[in-house]
Design a binder for these strands. Structure first.
Lengths: 196, 196, 196, 196
DNA sequence: GATGAATGAGCTTTCATTCAT
DNA sequence: GATGAATGAAAGCTCATTCAT
């Protein structure tokens, strides 16, 4: 077994367990059992429980960034890009529900307990939005007076709260595509210049 | 001393301590010390640690609902109402920073660890938004095809993510008013019908 | 129960357990069981396992110092004082065998693991010897060329090694009094000036 | 590489590590790293951690015995022999400081945790002293009433406590030779018959 | 023989909760 | 009602030892 396989197995197990119980209620032995390794084995790959969270966080956000960048780079129109970002973010719930839950939850928990940990990867992720906004402004599509730093926050926040709704509700009232369309549609309407 | 005074003192102490350390890292004895009561006294007013959180949550959201309703009821124009909601939500950070932090954080943590707890008060709070949206749609101000259930999510999410930015950053790049204005402005632009 | 009673109970239990198993092999739960308190109770009186050792060490050496000083202060003749010190030290094995074992053992363990901990109480104890030696030199009883700092080491070391022999052997070949007499006698012979 | 080479390497590494951290705080992996072998390799040469200690102990005391016997056998005069023993014992600190520390420490720790282990080699070592004493008594040099079993204890204890002082103090107040001379001088004075 | 990844028992310490005062 | 000393279950983490390679 390649070394990275154990690391992977533990990370994936941790995602499942954190999603099920939350970080604090998850026991190392839960993760170990889920990963089918001994408790001690986890400490060969991670320094401590918290390190599992951080490490997993960065790995997975990293992958998400790669994927969404790939999709966005194929587009020319910033309006399309905004749609793609929205759809991609929300589809995470379908494709990797456990991961979506954990990111949701831990991102906020991190407020307090990652105080020192400047969340570079996450910033990188939402900066994708502000980059699109700036591109749209340069092309005259989006209003100049909008602050990209605020839009990125608002857009991500809107999408993420949609995610939360989905995760919490057993049978969500709308399809993911519909929700993504509505949110991006409304933001685009709100951002576009008169002429467009 | 009225019975509710001790209850209040403990609740306020809990807000401070939860804000400082997070729910899981907060110790009952921390709260007791902050409230200047004995550890055991807390159990005369709350069933357990978790109950402090829930109880505090409902009380405080309740107060916020009362206040924002009061402000909104003085308005006629749904567009103004939307602005008021935004400003009021963001101003929480200034007025009651600790509370803002706790609501932020615990709302998400709750995903997992309040599983059974259907968060009625919170739903009541964000339903204020959908009520406004519906009012605006009836008055022909907002586009009919918008789903109020999605808008409420998106609007709240956008505002709350702005909050998060403020709480995390030492010196925020924008004023709260400016942020509230931009977010509500953009949503209103996005929601309004052509004619308006 | 007075607060100091629990502290005392735990200290005495620790002495027993450390004597039986040694510091490292002793479990907190062993001490708790011996003291008939809960594991957690120990941490109300001591910071950690190591703190039990240090604290006990200082308390008990303190008591020994008081007692031996009392006895010595009743004497005029430094030669008698030396005898008293020897007898008193060796009698510890009879009176407080467990304590004797622990002091024996931990004093040496401390070499490594108390590195930072400058063992004031112990130094105070053996300095009693050098004080006697100096007194004897002033009175012209002991040879002037003897270094009190070396004598104190040698005298204490000799006595303590006698202790060790007793502790280890099931049926010691000599009585404690006989041993104390021989050791002090030999040192006194070795230290005295010609005339005496 | 001869089999004994690995054994030697591990033993020497263990001495270093035990001296640095003490037996209980030393990890097998520390010793393995110091010896530049794999953790598992240690178990090809020793049964367990404890066995490393015992085995090392016996080997090294064995060497010391050989050396001091060699030196003593060249002498005729028991008084000289006593001096040689003292000097040789104390010089261990200079020549093999780590070993000296370990012997010091573990000899005492062993009290408890080597309970079953009857320390033959150590007994052999200190019996060298009683043999000298008996020889001196036969030659009429040392007083007949002295018990060789007590003298050996006292002499060894005195020397070993001197060692401890050296090991603990950063800059010892006396030279090793001076200390050895004072101790043996004082014992010899104390032991000798009138006439001599 | 040599390796070092994997194991899992075992331990210290924490802290929510209780209850005698 | 109020207290806070006492409880003891629970869990993160370590590390001696094993064994497949």
């Amino acid at each position: 077994m390649r070394i990275s396989d154990k690391h992977q197995k533990i990370t994936q197990a941790a995602i499942k367990v954190f999603a099920r119980k939350g970080f604090f209620n998850a026991r190392i032995s839960d993760i170990a059992k889920e990963a089918k390794v001994a408790d001690g084995t986890i400490y060969l790959y991670f320094n401590n429980k918290y390190d599992i969270l951080i490490s997993m966080f960065e790995d997975e956000i990293g992958k998400i960034i790669l994927r969404v960048r790939l999709l966005i780079d194929q587009e020319e129109d910033p309006r399309k890009m905004m749609e793609i970002f929205a759809l991609n973010h929300l589809q995470l719930i379908e494709g990797k529900r456990d991961l979506a839950e954990v990111l949701q939850m831990e991102l906020r928990q991190s407020n307090k307990f990652m105080k020192e940990y400047r969340n570079k990867k996450f910033i990188e992720y939402i900066d994708i939005i502000s980059t699109i906004v700036r591109k749209g402004q340069k092309m005259g599509l989006f209003r100049q007076e909008l602050l990209p730093g605020i839009i990125k926050c608002a857009y991500f926040g809107a999408l993420d709260e949609m995610s939360r709704l989905w995760i919490l509700s057993q049978k969500p009232p709308y399809s993911i595509k519909e929700a993504a369309r509505q949110v991006s549609d409304m933001f685009l309407h709100g951002m576009m210049t008169r002429k467009t």
